[in-house]
Design a protein around this nucleic acid. Structure first.
Lengths: 323, 323
DNA sequence: ACCCCGCATGTTGACGATAACATGTTGACG
DNA sequence: CGTCAACATGTTATCGTCAACATGCGGGGT
């Protein structure tokens, strides 16, 4: 910066002002500085800037350890939204063990991130984070729990859309393949499933434990009970695995069993049969998250953090209940 | 840091030494400092550290703008490998326009990243990057071009595995659905496809343009020529889309047409029919990339950057050529 | 008893930017 | 013609850390 100042024949402070778009710089001076910057290929050192200002224009993002569709899509959405306001995400993964979460936090906070996005998949850690720091924190992908500080797709609504669709088609014997045990979204879908059956007075068959993977879906599909006609899967890959298993067992989809997934991954329209699924708009989630964080960073109150509404995409994997 | 020093009754420099594991500190003193750190919940300011040392323990990663399986898997692999050596990835996306790439570079270099991973999907930008900076740069996912500074799965080998498999099954009429035009990996798979047909003296039918998406695969599948019995798709989602299209046209897979994908996404084993595909070990790519970068950062020569070998996973979507 | 050496720790000055305050230069106005 | 804003720019201190050098202290060799 000093060199730039010398070359432009001004003080380093003037260079700083040009860089930060301060008012009250003669256009001619500004041009001289900009030219010097170009000539020298100067790039400002953000570490120094961060030290002086306490801001870094970086958003810390804590991701789950396994790269599933939801988190990665959201990450991309955050990146794109953040880029437009000059921020970038600094990524770290953490499991839900407190030590892992603690390390992730330490790392990000030590780098003086301006905000934190926690893709908190486990309820226990939520509180722990907030007490550790005064950096604005937003939870993402937590269903609609922690509504105060969370941006998420409404899991309860999504689950109900799927189940009502099946119910309306005449199905009365339901089973559910869960997401990875302990994660808030998996738990919300599961709880809503159980409650739905209760409300309608339907038989509670055992819930099948999954972990989001197509492999788990396949295994669970092998364990689906006889007589079940409606299978609600906590995500699309598990639905694909389950369909594969059902067909191996001689059960046709949707003639014998209707299957619904969750996420609407881009391939789901081309599965066989094409998958009926709940669409989640992760782009919107990322956008709202970044928008809200910017409000907080700039000292304004973020608007209402309404849950993002999912919608049902009906395709070939669901049909009327067999007689 | 000053507060910690005061509380432990030492100078701030001693605190610094403890933090950085310098030798020659009395165990008792070290313990006192550590206790003070714990008491005060002190966290060191990496911006200041970065300013003083010029190192940040951050790896800049430039990703393509669209979150496909390969880049995201690799990103995760990089994150996991980097975490073990105390680094984290700072993410930015860029298209292959020079301005976009330039912005991404400026952002990352301004933050004094210690190394750069470029998921360079376009050959033109490769050179541009290197002249801009003296930070160690590694290209990832570039096929086996730029072997000097690149870690990648051997695209030529992978493509040949797929094509030889089909050839050995008796297929003689091939078509190819490409990845997004202009990207190095798509180009390598395409070039290798064309060369393979030349070598075997097979008819060159038009190459079908895709963009990695299942939608594009579906559209291309509708355009597959009559009489084609072997379809090589540049990735798995396009293969799924294409299979869907073929079956809509009354062509059975694999009885009429054999289809091979690329990537081995976790769902491909549960597609219908299960997809024969080329497995790419992105975890290995990420690991090798980080390992090599650490060598360079620490002033050692990185070992040979051998391409990662892909392998073929044969499943139900390929079979003998029809008579 | 003296010297010198090595260990453990303290002191000072970067690093590269911003913030707060200080200065110089115009031009309008009484 | 002198005064005082308002504007444009310069000067100095500061952010939190590390590196280089300085210091104090105890002990072994002669």
């Amino acid at each position: 910066m000093h060199d730039v100042a010398a070359r432009a024949g001004v003080s380093h402070q003037t260079v700083s002002r040009v860089l930060n778009d301060f008012p009250g710089i003669r256009p001619e001076t500004r041009e001289r500085v900009l030219q010097a910057i170009r000539d020298l290929g100067y790039r400002r050192n953000m570490a120094a800037r961060a030290l002086a200002t306490g801001r870094s224009e970086v958003i810390g993002v804590i991701m789950p350890e396994v790269p599933h569709f939801g988190p990665t899509s959201t990450l991309y959405a955050i990146e794109h939204a953040a880029k437009r306001v000059g921020f970038k995400p600094l990524i770290t993964t953490a499991s839900w063990e407190p030590s892992s979460m603690g390390e992730a936090l330490d790392f990000l906070l030590a780098r003086s991130v301006d905000a934190l996005v926690v893709m908190a998949q486990h309820p226990d850690i939520l509180a722990a984070v907030e007490t550790t720091t005064d950096v604005p924190v937003l939870y993402v992908l937590t269903g609609n729990s922690h509504a105060e500080r969370s941006v998420a797709v409404d899991q309860v609504a999504g689950t109900r859309l799927a189940l009502e669709h099946l119910y309306d088609l005449g199905h009365r014997r339901f089973q559910h393949i869960t997401g990875l045990s302990g994660l808030t979204e998996a738990q919300l879908r599961r709880d809503t499933f159980v409650r739905f059956l209760e409300e309608r007075g339907l038989e509670q068959l055992p819930v099948l434990e999954g972990d989001w993977s197509a492999d788990a879906g396949y295994r669970a599909g092998l364990a689906v009970e006889e007589g079940v006609t409606a299978l609600f899967c906590a995500n699309d890959p598990m639905a694909m695995g389950a369909i594969h298993a059902l067909e191996e067992r001689g059960l046709a989809v949707p003639d014998d069993v209707s299957v619904v997934g969750f996420d609407d991954v881009p391939e789901s329209g081309y599965a066989h049969p094409a998958l009926t699924t709940v669409h989640q708009d992760f782009t919107e989630v990322g956008l709202r998250a970044v928008t809200a964080l910017m409000e907080i960073i700039n000292g304004r109150e973020p608007g209402e953090l309404a849950p993002v509404e999912p919608w049902l995409v009906v395709r070939g994997s669901t049909g009327p209940a067999p007689a």
